[in-house]
């Protein structure tokens, strides 16, 4: 069984989550465009990524890309 997470006092690192709750949201949307449209309508900063599967879905190339990393 994987090691369980121990409860830790919030650290400086953990404060990044606090920042998410206090800073203005600035969203990068990858996938369903409707989510971006709705956020935009609410006045939330959102950037939609015109995403397509890596290597146009070629599994061999996609596998190599994931190993060679970007």
């Amino acid at each position: 069984m994987p090691e369980l997470t121990r409860y830790m006092e919030p650290t400086m690192e953990n404060n990044k989550v606090t920042n998410l709750l206090t800073d203005p949201l600035d969203v990068i949307n990858i996938g369903l465009e409707g989510f971006a449209t709705e956020l935009k309508q609410q006045g939330v900063a959102v950037t939609h990524v015109d995403w397509s599967p890596p290597a146009a879905g070629d599994p061999k190339i996609a596998d190599l890309l994931s190993k060679l990393g970007t």
Binding site: S52, P54, A55, A56, I61, L65, L68, G69, T70
Partner: peptide, 10 residues
Amino acid sequence: IDIRLVLETG
């Protein structure tokens, strides 16, 4: 030009 980025983004 990074060939990895070319292939990843299409």
